[in-house]
């Protein structure tokens, strides 16, 4: 797929590897760049480089507990926009830190639309 504009660099905070590698493939199919993943908020803080990321996908429950919402707020403070990717829509709705929500299981068309929200 070709883009009129630059591809987006996307980071993924998720603890289910099956979903990560699927979403990674979808992101690449859409012509974007998969910029890495972490499975916990603590790891995210260690490895993320804000200058190399245009947006982050964030799950609610991670390897270190229900830290997704805190991670989303933290990412926003670093200037990184966030989309929740979750099957727990009602929990995600309680938190205002994200631009929107991608439902699991992730559909390519939905992901493609929502990723465009990262363009500021």
């Amino acid at each position: 797929m070709t883009h009129d504009v630059a591809p987006l660099r996307i980071f993924y905070l998720e603890d289910n590897p099956l979903i990560i590698f699927h979403v990674e493939a979808m992101i690449e199919d859409l012509g974007h760049i998969f910029a890495g993943s972490a499975d916990s908020f603590s790891e995210l803080k260690q490895i993320i480089n804000a200058h190399e990321i245009d947006g982050a996908l964030v799950d609610i429950d991670l390897a270190d507990g229900r830290t997704g919402p805190t991670a989303a707020a933290w990412l926003r403070e670093q200037g990184i926009p966030v989309l929740f990717v979750t099957g727990q829509e009602t929990i995600a709705a309680e938190y205002g830190a994200a631009l929107g929500l991608v439902r699991k299981p992730v559909a390519a068309a939905d992901l493609a639309d929502k990723l465009e929200l990262f363009r500021r």
């Binding site: 979903i19 493939a25 099957g87 299981p105």
Partner: peptide, 20 residues
Amino acid sequence: NHRVKNILASVSSIFAMTRR
């Protein structure tokens, strides 16, 4: 409910990636 959704999402990923 959370676990069932997670398993369905896992299976969905296995399906898509196996097909590819």
